[in-house]
Amino acid sequence: MDLKKQEDFLNNIASKLGRPRRSGVEPPKWESKPYLHLYEGKSHEELIEDFITNLGQLNTKVDRISRDQFAASLGNVIQDFEVRSTVYWDDEALDSLCLSDVLEKNQIDAFRWDPNENEEEMKQRTAHVDLGIVFADLGLAETGTVVLFNGGGRGRLVSLLPPKFLCILSEKDIVPRLTQAVQKVHERVSEGLPACINFITGPSRTGDIEMDLAFGVHGPGKVHVILLKDE
């Protein structure tokens, strides 16, 4: 029944297009690359600077630090954002920064997004903490975007429900723009994509009341990025 509906639907499209049904079409190689001039010739250092500048314009501070400065840097975020509680990803990259120890030292009520824990409890808890902490897969220089491949211990709600959001990123993972990020997603299609991929650029915003800009209407209204220098 469903398959017949599908066939009718697609056959109708072919017929309206005035040709036989097509299947397995692949897009042509697009010759034009209008985005090239936006980053061609830029050094990686310049891309990093672009990333920081672009986020700065979106009310988002970026701390560029070496790994041994992480504890101090996180301490500052905790103070600036008045954080008392947090949820963070179950992620090796965060563990390698000894995140849970630093949180404990700062007397933060912290918990890990653990897929083995009770789901409903985690959701409720995440909805009530001050800050969500993740480690991003990519950063986009042109826009100041961070890219998250969610899944398992890397819960989607961590970057979404709390009113403040801290994203940690390695300098080496900064690429010029969306072009390189979608290429990486494209390459991963054959091995299967996670259920959700997020591209996040600064704090949640709206202009729906008289075009007056306001932050945090649904997603986090305050965002901070800690950028780890390559060592």
Partner: peptide
């Protein structure tokens, strides 16, 4: 639409939650 180089969120939904996920 708004002159933004990109919107705050671009979200790719690729499947329902997968076996290892506890949200979605």
């Amino acid at each position: 639409a708004t002159g933004q180089k990109i919107s705050v969120y671009v979200t790719g939904i690729n499947s329902p939650r997968q076996s290892e996920d506890s949200d979605g």
